[in-house]
């Protein structure tokens, strides 16, 4: 008879939701744990924490967390989060989603939220392909990498996500791999406390499809390659953070600046002149002399 005890993080996982749907060797479990640890360290009240995700493997994180969570449509986590945050500024709103969701179908929303410096935190788990639909190429797939829709090797250059985030206006930009568990946790803790649009990219293995199609079907090998290839460069210009097939991976906290955080307003007093239909009519020459009817 197996006795069931309590895990220290049980309070953070929604009752009745495990087991999760992720493949063995996936980095999403590590990311989820690092995020929960960061929430603990940053003392974010769970009743005020809201996690929003789009669609895909990463999109499922929201549903496992024991907080208010929203699993929206593909690519739309950021505009949904925008509504939540602006409507109730008390909420701590975190978007956790995948590279395809945030940067292909949702790319437009990402750059505009960063431009506004909306006070939301965005975590992108980048596994270099569309995992849930079976390993298609995406906007982060390295050049020459194989996928089910680039069988001869990817012909399209990928996005350099930290560079894109910085250029769009994010006030905090960092990248770690799931090998860097402690650094990731510390960065996420810092991000949860920093006001403004913050972005963290988490490089994560997808041994099932991306790895299998690119000669690294073992999660352990993939994580070992992250260890081998990663170079920690805090404060480095993210222009250098481009990732190629089996290339080195720049990790660290690249951007940490201050910028005014977006809030709608300003509010002003009621001005009769501004709104009176009569005063508007007076300005229109064709309306002179016409009575009401």
């Amino acid at each position: 008879m197996i006795r069931r005890g309590r895990h220290p993080l049980d309070d953070y996982i929604r009752p009745g939701r495990l087991p999760h749907i992720w493949c063995p060797g996936c980095g999403l479990g590590i990311t989820t744990t690092a995020f929960i640890n960061a929430v603990q360290e940053a003392h974010v009240p769970l009743d005020k924490l809201t996690v929003v995700s789009g669609i895909g493997c990463t999109g499922r994180i929201a549903g496992y967390l024991n907080v208010d969570s929203f699993h929206t449509t593909h690519g739309r986590a950021i505009p949904f989060a925008t509504g939540l945050k602006i409507a109730n500024p008390e909420l701590k709103v975190v978007v956790i989603s995948g590279d395809g969701d945030l940067f292909a179908i949702g790319g437009n929303h990402f750059i505009h939220a960063a431009r506004r410096n909306l006070d939301i935190k965005v975590i992108c788990v980048n596994n270099f392909n569309y995992g849930m639909t079976g390993g298609q190429m995406g906007p982060t797939t390295p050049l020459d990498a194989r996928s089910t829709t680039s069988p001869g090797g990817n012909l399209e250059p990928p996005f350099n996500l930290p560079y894109l985030a910085k250029a769009s206006g994010a006030v905090f930009v960092a990248r770690w791999t799931v090998f860097h568990v402690k650094q990731l946790r510390k960065t996420l803790t810092y991000m949860l406390e920093k006001p403004g649009f913050c972005f963290v990219e988490v490089i994560s293995p997808c041994p099932t499809v991306y790895g299998a199609l690119n000669k690294t079907p073992s999660a352990l090998e993939m994580i070992k390659s992250y260890k081998r290839n990663s170079v920690i460069c805090h404060g480095e210009d993210p222009d250098m953070a481009y990732i190629g097939l089996q290339s080195q991976i720049l990790v660290g906290q690249f951007v940490d600046i201050e910028r005014p955080v977006f809030t709608p307003g300003p509010y002003y007093e009621y001005d009769e002149q501004l709104l009176s239909s009569k005063s508007i009519l007076k300005k229109l020459p064709w309306a002179r002399g016409r009575g009401e009817w």
């Binding site: 449509t73 739309r76 509504g83 945050k85 602006i86 929303h109 709608p264």
Partner: peptide
């Protein structure tokens, strides 16, 4: 004292109001 947002497109607009509705 209302909140007015001009979004980047109509997809963002509709999704944004749904988020706000879930904030009450």
């Amino acid at each position: 004292g209302g909140k007015f947002l001009q979004m980047e497109d109509e997809i963002a607009s509709i999704t944004c109001i749904l988020g706000a509705s879930w904030a009450g």
